[in-house]
C-alpha cells in the first residue's frame, strides 16, 4: 500500500519499483472484510472501481458482470452491513479483481466460504491466472495450496522456512510416505522399525518412512491385522511438511 516504508532496500513490484501508479495494477483482499457499512453494495463497488481508475461506464459494466457471476444481483441495493459474511466475502473479492489487476494479493480468501463458493473463488482465481495475473495468497489450509499453487513460501514467526516450487519441495521430501486408511486397532504400527514420522488421525494414518525402508515391508505387517481401506505410497502432503517444519517450534 506504499504506507510502510522499508528500513533499507527498495520495493519492486512486477519488475518496477513500487509507486502510487502501481496501485491500479494490484488487487488486495484483506483478511478482515472492509466495507462502508451503510453504503449500498453496487454503489460501493462502483466507488471502489472509480478509485482504481475505472471510467464510470466501464465500471458499471464490470461491476454488473461480476455481481451476476457471483450471484449477488438481488442484493445490489442492500446496505453491506445487511449482507451475510459469505456475501460480504464475495463482494470483497469482486472489489479486489474488478479492475483486472496484474498482481492479486489475497489474505485468507477462503475463510468462511461454503464449498460451492470456494469452488467459484478457485475457478475465478485460475481464470485470472490464465489471463496472466500473478496471484499471491495466504492460507492455513494446505489442501487448497496443493490444489492451486505453483510456488509456495512457508513463513513461521516472521522467518522464511521454506520457499520454492511446490513440485520441487515435494520431491525433496522423497517419495517415501505411506497413506494408510484402516479399521481396527493400529497401535502396533508404531512398533515397526524405520518409521521417521507418524501422524495417526484415527481412521487414517500418514507415515513417513526412512529412506532405506521399503514400504512393502509395512504393507506385509498390516495385512491381516487391520482392515486396509487404502494403502498408498506417495509424496508427502503439504500438511505433513508443514507440521514437520513448524511443529517443533509450536510445541
Amino acid at each position: 500500500m506504499n504506507i510502510i516504508i522499508p528500513d533499507s532496500g527498495r520495493i519492486e513490484v512486477l519488475g518496477r519499483s513500487m509507486d502510487e501508479n502501481m496501485k491500479t495494477e494490484i488487487g488486495y483482499l484483506p483478511e478482515d472484510r472492509g466495507f462502508y457499512p451503510k453504503m449500498r453494495l453496487r454503489e460501493q463497488l462502483l466507488f471502489l472501481a472509480a478509485l482504481k481508475g475505472l471510467r464510470p461506464a466501464q465500471a458499471r459494466q464490470t461491476v454488473d458482470l461480476w455481481l451476476e457471476r457471483f450471484d449477488l444481483v438481488d442484493w445490489r441495493t442492500k446496505k453491506t452491513e445487511e449482507l451475510s459474511r459469505g456475501m460480504q466475502q464475495k463482494a470483497q473479492f469482486i472489489a479486489t479483481i474488478l479492475h483486472d489487476p496484474r498482481l492479486i494479493i489475497l489474505d485468507e480468501p477462503f475463510s468462511g466460504l461454503d464449498p460451492v463458493n470456494t469452488k467459484l473463488f478457485k475457478d475465478v482465481m485460475l481464470e485470472m491466472r490464465d489471463r496472466g495475473a500473478t496471484i499471491i495468497f495466504s492460507t492455513h489450509r494446505m489442501e487448497q495450496v496443493e490444489m492451486i499453487c505453483d510456488e509456495i513460501c512457508l513463513i513461521n514467526k516472521a522467518e522464511k522456512v521454506l520457499e520454492g516450487s511446490l513440485k520441487k519441495i515435494k520431491q525433496q521430501y522423497g517419495k517415501n510416505t505411506v497413506v494408510l486408511e484402516y479399521e481396527g486397532d493400529a497401535g502396533f504400527v508404531r512398533e515397526f522399525p524405520g518409521i521417521a514420522k507418524l501422524d495417526d488421525y484415527g481412521r487414517y494414518m500418514e507415515i513417513q518412512l526412512e529412506e532405506s525402508i521399503d514400504p512393502q515391508e509395512l504393507l506385509k505387517l498390516v495385512t491381516g491385522k487391520l482392515r486396509v481401506g487404502r494403502f498408498e505410497v506417495k509424496e508427502p502432503t503439504l500438511n505433513a511438511i508443514f507440521i514437520d517444519k513448524v511443529g517443533g517450534s509450536h510445541a
Binding site: 500500500m1 462502508y36 471502489l48
Partner: peptide, 18 residues
C-alpha cells in the same frame, strides 16, 4: 473512525494515498 473500525480504509488505501 467509521472507515477505521469497518476496516474499509485498508481497501481504499490500496487504491490511493492517505
Amino acid at each position: 473512525i467509521e472507515e477505521k473500525t469497518s476496516r474499509v480504509v485498508e481497501i481504499v488505501l490500496s487504491s490511493m494515498k492517505p
